[in-house]
Design a protein around this nucleic acid. Structure first.
Lengths: 350, 350
DNA sequence: TTGAAAGCGTTACCAA
DNA sequence: TTGGTAACGCTTTCAA
């Protein structure tokens, strides 16, 4: 950044000192005028404010954070904004934060471990008032460093490793159960759960819920697990192609996809390479109610999560921890998902 | 969580001074070890680094920004993350920024003037290295204050009021033209453009492009403008209901929707309350290739914008302005949209 | 009610 | 190569 050329830049940015000089008062008084107007005589206040307007003074938040040791920013390190459930969370959080006069800044880790950890490091350095964190469900590394610095962190969509912090999650086990029950009620007898459950707790929970529903049928219904590498459309497409190859009697008649995009992939592959029909030959239900499942060729049934409310509650918990650290008690809030029936699973006219 | 219990919080956060003392060197040397390792003797460096690790020291970015007058954060105040075109822009921008070692933080104004201006104020106070800004197309107020502070701002999806800054836009006029041409080629003769064009330049441009395409037909094709209040699904639904009421000969046979969601609304309303068929009775094309047009009942043709590239280029322009302010020359980059044909407009088998 | 001055945790300069 | 020290722009005591 070249200096040299005369003052037409940063040099021209007025500081509080400049305001003070122009208003003929001291620095401290200007600071008070800005932060504690009640401590300043009405006349002085008015004069200072006029000068501030005239000079276009804007206080430097960096300096103010450093001096006061506070910040008006809340960060949200978020797994994947392309999944609208997370966008909903951010809307809810932003609404709550705004009420408290705080601004929400989003950091999209986009399912990338490196990016997630980079953003965590950023917020560890850049003191914010607090952090919302929707992590890779099995990877929290880096979060502890932030908490050690005294910065409150609330988890979204992941249970905390210990009970030493707040978290908001959806009941995935129950979601899996509901999804399976629904398919069973539609007449499905050979279910398959498609997804990546190994180190992805939410999906694992959903699978366990499906297992429970199937167990309740005392053998009348079977459940198969079809693992995928991740939960993207391509993973679903691969499964779809594989299903088409199977002999009819070995093919599931009801599929619970771990995520909407997986379902979209399955539907696309099956319709593209067979005469099988949804939902008559094969019923399918996704998970998340992701508005990005735009290219579903059949309106997709799904388990919807209350993203907006999750975000709102998480931000409220965070705010409480920021504002009343002594009286704050850590909580785990579990919200219920709900079934959304569309064409892909409904064998009865809706 | 009670406090009371002895220092295990903010008090415990180690500062450079603490590192210096523990390593038996001076403060300045630690700073050098962190920022200019080459200026420090290998042995000393190693010792300092060990101490840093042991103490879990993380440098305070607030203090560092204040002292150095720089920041490693780039902000992106973005119109509407629910429209995936903007999410694509953010991905492109984040990729470019990361290459330069900067972090991208998103502020979603969500089509709200107040929120947009709040976020602009935030970045005016909170000095960032630079700002990307996808504004309400007619509302830049607040941006000047930031630029006056010497902070570079690159506009996305909006032309700058003067040529005094960089911007990246898509060629909306041409997009409108292409969309109209496509419908005309499909055999449409009575076109309608649906959208909010009054103070929304991009949509106005698209409309003008459609006008140009129609004018080229020397009267063979007509174009009607159907204005809406905004460009949401509901606006489209209202138009759809109104179209159904019209006498067939007064009904358009080809619709250019100003945005995908508007098209989705129209399709839903028309299918829901008439026997009209897409695309045979009514062809329709949207704009943006928004992955959130999930509930389209017919795969939607659209004009896709190169969001990722727009974001990447915008960030590159910003970085250039940040890193080489003297040699930097402001530019307006115009990218071309491209036609994506799907079922909603294609009267020939694809 | 106001002013003066001591920080906040770094960076960057100049001497040593 | 290192140490000492003056900024950076603000907040916050403490006196006046």
């Amino acid at each position: 950044m070249a200096h040299g050329d005369s003052g037409r830049r940063a040099d021209a940015v007025p500081r509080m000192t400049d305001v003070a000089r122009a208003a003929g008062v001291s620095l401290g008084t200007v600071s008070n005028a800005v932060n504690h107007p009640d401590r300043v005589a009405p006349g002085t206040l008015q004069r200072i404010r006029r000068v501030i307007d005239e000079m276009g003074f804007v206080r430097n938040a960096t300096a103010q954070s450093l001096a006061a040791g506070t910040s008006s920013v809340v960060g949200f390190v978020v797994l994947n904004l392309a999944n609208t459930i997370f966008l909903d969370m951010s809307s809810g959080a932003q609404a709550s934060a705004a009420k408290a006069g705080l601004s929400l800044l989003l950091a999209n880790s986009d399912m990338d471990v490196v990016r997630q950890s980079t953003y965590l490091d950023l917020f560890a350095e850049q003191p914010a008032a607090g952090l919302l964190f929707a992590p890779m469900p099995h990877l929290f590394s880096g979060m502890e460093r932030i908490r050690q610095r005294g910065m409150p962190v609330v988890l979204l969509n992941a249970r905390p490793p210990e009970q030493s912090q707040c978290a908001v999650v959806a009941n995935d086990e129950d979601g899996g159960y509901q999804a399976a029950r629904h398919l069973i009620e539609q007449g499905c007898r050979r279910l398959a759960f498609v997804g990546y459950i190994d180190s992805w707790p939410p999906l694992h929970e959903r699978y366990l819920g499906a297992v429970r529903a199937v167990n309740e049928t005392a053998g009348a219904v079977q459940l198969e697990l079809i693992p995928t590498r991740e939960v993207r459309t391509e993973d679903g497409a691969a499964v779809g192609r594989q299903l088409v190859e199977r002999k009819p009697e070995r093919r599931p008649d009801g599929i619970i996809a771990g995520a909407d995009l997986v379902a979209v992939g399955i539907i696309g592959a099956v319709l593209g390479s067979s005469d099988l029909r949804f939902p008559s030959d094969l019923a399918i239900i996704g998970y998340d109610d992701n508005r990005a499942s735009w290219n579903a060729q059949i309106p997709l049934s799904t388990m919807a999560q209350p993203g907006l409310e999750m975000g709102r509650i998480a931000a409220d918990l965070l705010l409480e921890e920021i504002l009343q650290p002594e009286s704050h008690v850590h909580r785990l809030v579990v919200l219920e998902p709900h079934l959304v029936v569309r064409d892909s699973s409904s064998r009865r006219p809706v």
